[in-house]
Amino acid sequence: MQIQAPRVVRSTWHGAGAAGLAVVFWALVPLLVEQAGELPPLRLSALALLAGALGTLPMARRRRHRDTTLTGAQRLAIYLGIPLLMAGAVGASFAAFTRAPTAEAALILYTWPVLFLLASRRLALGRLPITTLAGGLLAFAGAALLVAPQALAGGVSGAWGGYLLALAAALCWALYSLASQVPAWRLATRMPHLLLIASTVVGGASLALEGVSALPSAATLQVAAALGLGPYGLAMLAWSRAMHDPQAHRLGNLAHAVPVLATLFLVLAGIAVPDWRLPLAALLVAAGSITASR
């Protein structure tokens, strides 16, 4: 027992550190997107996903012998469906930040853990527990707290397009999280290929919808690289490490801090105005996520 205890403690601390690192990187996404203002959102998404593919290369392994057990439909779902979800999640969220106030769009985006919990509990249990429903209502009440003034003041406005894009991105992340639970698909070791395909898809959409633009500045390229290497590179590696920890069921709750941290970073950077609705909405989203996961 005296020999095994330090290993358990060390494993738990490593897992908690990895989870905390991933949460901080994800919370920085809205702030980094705001810093890359000159790039169209789809072009920025393509560059970030490409950087993420390069950053996750250490995760890639050859598993051709195991891929032979996959059916044609499973391969299509992995190498087409998953990249489309990634492209939709990143592209829609980046576009949302340009069409709606960044802090408000970020809070709507980070309701995706609640959507994931609602879907996974429904699939696993065939019903939705009361705590899951209550947590979902709390989280969406936080998002509604930000959106309702827009509706009461001017009805459907330009910001609503950003809100809907943020919700679409949240749905994509929730569906991606469901797909990542399929053991046979082993998405972690396929991550570089999936991110590269997603980058190609978004890049094609960018050329079709945004046209050809001048080369971005070196500073903007650095922001795009930071987005890819951080939230879509190191963060995914760190989160994968945390989810293999013996205390993974507890470490997963750290993801509920993302909307609170994202709002805090935006306020500290002077991008979001310190409005009483922002911290209250962030706390409602975090409290709803924790309640739904109980």
Rank of each mutant, 00 (worst) to 15 (best):
M1W: 02
Q2T: 11
Q2P: 00
A5V: 06
R7Y: 04
S11Y: 10
S11T: 13
W13A: 12
H14V: 12
H14F: 15
G17M: 09
A18F: 02
A19C: 05
V23F: 08
V24F: 08
F25L: 15
A27I: 09
L32Y: 01
V33G: 06
R43A: 03
L50G: 13
L50F: 13
A53E: 10
L54G: 07
P58Y: 13
A60S: 05
R61M: 03
R64L: 13
T68I: 09
T68K: 15
Q74C: 07
Q74N: 11
Y79V: 07
L80R: 00
G81M: 07
G81F: 06
A87I: 03
A87V: 03
G88I: 10
R99S: 05
A103R: 01
A105V: 10
A105P: 12
I108N: 02
L109C: 02
G126Y: 05
L128H: 03
T131I: 02
T131D: 10
T132Y: 02
T132E: 06
L137P: 02
L138N: 03
A141T: 14
A141K: 04
G142W: 01
A148R: 13
L152A: 13
W160V: 07
W160E: 10
G161D: 05
G162K: 05
A168G: 14
A168D: 08
A169E: 15
A169C: 13
A170I: 09
L171V: 14
W173V: 08
A174T: 02
L178E: 06
L178T: 02
L178S: 02
Q181V: 00
V182Q: 15
A184M: 08
W185C: 00
L187G: 06
L187I: 14
M191A: 13
L196G: 11
V202F: 06
V202D: 10
L207K: 02
A208I: 09
E210P: 03
E210K: 00
E210H: 00
G211M: 15
L215C: 02
L215D: 06
A219M: 10
T220R: 06
V223S: 10
A225W: 08
G228A: 08
L234I: 08
M236Q: 14
L237R: 12
H244Y: 00
Q247I: 07
Q247A: 13
A248H: 11
R250K: 14
L254C: 03
H256W: 10
A257L: 15
L261A: 09
A269S: 13
I271P: 00
I271R: 14
W276A: 13
L278W: 10
P279R: 11
A282N: 12
L283I: 01
A287T: 09
G288Q: 04
T291E: 02
